[in-house]
Design a protein around this nucleic acid. Structure first.
Lengths: 337, 337
DNA sequence: TACGTTTACGCTAGCCGTAAGTATG
DNA sequence: CATACTTACGGCTAGCGTAAACGTA
């Protein structure tokens, strides 16, 4: 006995015992329903419908009982589908995102402005932390999403979606010698003490140091801080030049500093969004992803979710190669300073 | 969503969240259940079970709800199966058979003796009638079964199962000249007035007259009666020699008559059982068929039921050819005088 | 003759079982 | 290292759609 057969059954009963009508309603072929009805009747060894020749002429006493039970079954089935859809479509609850200060401060507000309007009853819980903390919270499923940058290996059970790319900006006070240069090169930066973000974990290298090393330069990093505003403060206090994410520098708000994009001299960074593969995305989560990374279609999204780890890595590498080749990217994939 | 998936689901829940145990209980493979569970979860976009790595560790709040609904569904499904099985296995009610006097009087009592013992609460309704009445009752579905002899065409919607074969017996008083013969031939019978069964409908011919005609003889049929005992009475009263079904003559009970089997001179007759193709055989009906025609296996039975009209005719003809060739038949297919 | 059902048939998808892979304790 | 779950893969059934046959009003 199949659920479809019960479905067909009540459809026939609800359409004046017409198999043809039932087929039209269910967008399927009429012979299919006919056959399934026969199969069901022979499985139950019971005539459900009275027949006048080939045409259905009525419902057997026993058929009435069967149909009534079938309705209950289908009702329960629909209920199961509904309660799960309700959860998935729910617009209230707690939506937790672990992220870095830079994202929380400079990127997410713009996204949330429209998102929160759509889900006013949703409590958005922003967890700020180091890369390690973010990763840990994600793995323990303490948060739904993680948003960060850098090439952390998140393991097989986590989906990692590249969202947008950004460049760094060099910051220095107006009276700094770098302000006199028409074009700033890496070797210029190497001459001054640098204040920037710490490297992942306790690593001694990053894409930043690698870039210097490529030109046989040794950057003089004197301070690191996770908070772009802290870095700016140190720069203002003359501890060195700052290197921060471009979106953390606003010429209007940071008038006392000069900013110079490193897009030509330092590699581009990728911000990704990650979540556990075994959670099911509720509607507001999908909406958020769409807001945060509009270039990811829902097809691509499900592709990311269902592919395995190795191909996921490959895909990440493809995106890295995008960066390396410095291809033009669609507007929304770039962050403009 | 499939019923099996729900089945698997509750099996897992009922076996300490062990997929392996559930598979053993359901006599299926463990990977199969695992996969179906995954498919169900991804269809519902819901985690039903908590997982500890790969092992199932608990039931989600939502999972509890789903499982509880699934139980209801399966319960209803079982109910549907039960009510139909109850009907099919019922051992009470009314079992109606239309048949001829000869079958009712001389054949069926032996069959019913054991059958009735098995189904004491079953009301057996024997409808006696002419071949036309029997056919009509069967077509109007006024009776469940029909049992008769002769080559009536019953149409496409009726299953006709050959049950056994029998010969006719010639009856005459002890002082009849036929009693002096060592071997009786057709031409001997043609010399005397004959009392026998009427022909089907108002036909002028039958297998009996055909046999005479084959030898250029004309039988002198002076009386016909449907009741073998009536025929015997007429024979006793000297109206002629009787030709009745062999089972209607008992040398012990009919001591005043002599009986001579016509198995060498008259064609053999076939008694068949028929019923509408669109009824479902209840258990007692199958049992009855097994008692009445033990040589028909249940496989053969379902073959008879599901084949179409044309092949059914062919099969009947095969059986007729059996008769014509006079092959040896199994004991229970023959009626011994 | 036209409408509705059944039958026939080829295609495809999905289920199942076997076997190998993987994680956990 | 053993146990339990997952993944991979091949075989096979079963459902579906198209087309044709059938039966009835």
């Amino acid at each position: 006995m199949k659920l479809q057969q019960l479905n067909y059954l009540v459809a026939i009963a609800d359409n004046n015992l017409s198999i043809t009508k039932a087929a039209e309603k269910l967008y399927t072929s009429q012979p299919g329903i006919s056959k399934q009805l026969r199969l069901l009747e022979s499985e139950l060894e019971t005539k459900i419908f009275e027949r006048n020749g080939k045409q259905l002429a009525g419902i057997t006493e026993l058929g009435e009982e069967v149909i009534s039970r079938a309705r209950k079954v289908l009702h329960e089935i629909n209920h199961i589908k509904n309660i799960t859809n309700l959860i998935n479509d729910s617009d209230s609850g707690r939506f937790s995102i672990a992220t870095t200060q830079t994202q929380a401060q400079y990127v997410l507000p713009k996204v949330f402005s429209s998102f929160h309007g759509r889900y006013p009853n949703l409590t958005i819980d922003l967890q700020q932390g180091t890369s390690e903390q973010i990763l840990s919270q994600l793995q323990k499923q303490e948060v739904d999403f993680a948003i960060a940058s850098g090439n952390i290996d998140l393991g097989a059970n986590i989906v990692k979606i590249p969202c947008f790319q950004w460049d760094r900006t060099v910051l220095f006070p107006h009276d700094h010698p770098l302000g006199d240069l028409k074009k700033i090169q890496l070797e210029d930066l190497a001459k001054y003490p640098i204040v920037t973000y710490p490297f992942m974990g306790n690593a001694k290298q990053s894409s930043l140091t690698d870039a210097f090393k490529k030109e046989n330069l040794e950057p003089n990093i004197v301070f690191t801080a996770r908070d772009a505003d802290v870095i700016k403060t140190y720069v203002r206090n003359g501890f060195g030049i700052g290197i921060v994410a471009s979106m953390a520098f606003s010429p209007q708000k940071d008038r006392d500093l000069l900013g110079y994009s490193t897009k030509d001299i330092l590699p581009r960074c990728t911000t990704w969004l990650a979540f556990n593969k075994n959670i099911f995305l509720k509607k507001y989560m999908k909406d958020f992803i769409n807001d945060f990374a509009p270039h990811i279609s829902s097809e691509q999204l499900s592709h990311y979710i269902h592919q395995d780890y190795t191909s996921s890595l490959q895909l990440m590498h493809e995106h890295e190669s995008d960066k390396a080749e410095d291809k033009p990217l669609p507007m929304h994939q770039m962050w403009h300073i």
